[in-house]
Amino acid sequence: MTTYLPKLTLPDAVFNNLPVSVLLPVALGTLVGYSMRPKDTERAYLSWKQPPLRPPPWVFGPAWTILYGLMGYAAHRAVHFGTSPLNSAATIAAARHGATLYSIQLELNLAWMPLFFGLRRPVEATIDVLALLGINGYLAYLWGSSVDSTAGWLLVPYVAWLGFATYLSAGTGYLNNWDLTLDDTKKAQ
């Protein structure tokens, strides 16, 4: 197990304040989404070949808002309750380790959209989402088995969505020969 790395971890004040813990990932995800110019993102999304089961573009905003809220609440529960001085040293260590992993995964999560839609780098975006899937699968296990079972279960929908997002990211990359430049750009070349 790695350890708690304060320089890579959100401050305790974030985790210990329920509204901040829930709203921070929602706000950051919304900021990244809008910074990518939603109409341009939607146009690009609809122009690429997609694997079966591709959801319509309007699904992503509500889905991510719910998932960000759930992950923020899970983080609050795990770190706030897990670092209580009434807990064992092992529980506190697991909660702190999870706080570092949560902070890292949040940064990776926020990087995916700029990688995929901004830079149009499907290989890197797929590696990013695979890392997210692995970290969050482990985080759900760690928090669920060592800190707070509710926190672990709250991450299950996020892990499931990341599995689906991995399929979409890799499928879209593969079906477009790992080249996500827009068709009008391809025609100009």
Rank of each mutant, 00 (worst) to 15 (best):
T41F: 01
L31F: 13
A111D: 02
L24A: 14
P56T: 10
T3G: 09
V14D: 00
G72F: 08
S47N: 06
P19M: 05
R43Y: 10
L162K: 02
N87M: 12
G29N: 13
P57Q: 07
N87Y: 06
V156C: 12
Y138C: 15
L175W: 10
P62L: 05
T41W: 03
T166Y: 02
P38K: 01
F81P: 01
L70Q: 07
Y45M: 00
L182T: 13
S146Q: 15
L162G: 03
P62Q: 09
G134H: 03
P85C: 02
L5P: 00
N87E: 09
W153D: 05
A74G: 12
L168A: 12
G61T: 07
S84M: 01
G33F: 13
T166G: 00
V159I: 11
L110V: 01
W64R: 00
V79T: 07
F116I: 03
A170T: 05
T91L: 07
T172Y: 12
R121S: 11
L175D: 13
W153Y: 15
V22K: 10
A13D: 09
A93Q: 14
Y174G: 01
L154E: 07
N177Y: 11
T150M: 14
W112S: 01
Y45K: 01
L168C: 05
Y138A: 15
I104D: 05
V79I: 10
Q105I: 04
A74F: 04
H80G: 05
Y158V: 07
I66R: 01
F60L: 04
D12E: 08
Y45P: 02
H76V: 04
K187H: 14
Y174M: 06
L155Q: 05
W161Y: 10
P56G: 09
Y158T: 04
D12R: 13
N176A: 15
L139D: 02
I104Q: 08
L70H: 08
M1A: 14
W58Q: 13
Y138N: 13
Y4M: 09
K49G: 07
F15W: 10
K49T: 15
T91K: 13
T30D: 00
F117S: 02
P62A: 04
G137Q: 14
I92P: 02
D184Y: 14
L132W: 01
L8R: 13
T30E: 07
A111V: 03
T91F: 06
T126M: 02
T100M: 11
D12W: 03
L142P: 11
P51R: 10
L175V: 15
E124F: 03
T91Q: 11
V14E: 00
V20K: 09
P55R: 12
Y45S: 00
P38L: 03
Y141D: 14
L180G: 02
W178E: 04
V156I: 15
T166K: 00
G98F: 13
L108A: 10
L28M: 13
K7I: 14
S145H: 15
V14Y: 00
A140K: 09
L86W: 01
T172C: 13
H76A: 05
F60H: 03
L24W: 03
T100D: 13
K187T: 09
V156W: 06
V147I: 06
Q189M: 12
D40Q: 13
A188N: 09
P52Q: 08
Y34S: 01
L5T: 12
W143E: 05
L31T: 12
S103L: 10
T150P: 08
L155N: 04
A44R: 04
E107S: 12
F60G: 02
V79H: 06
N177H: 15
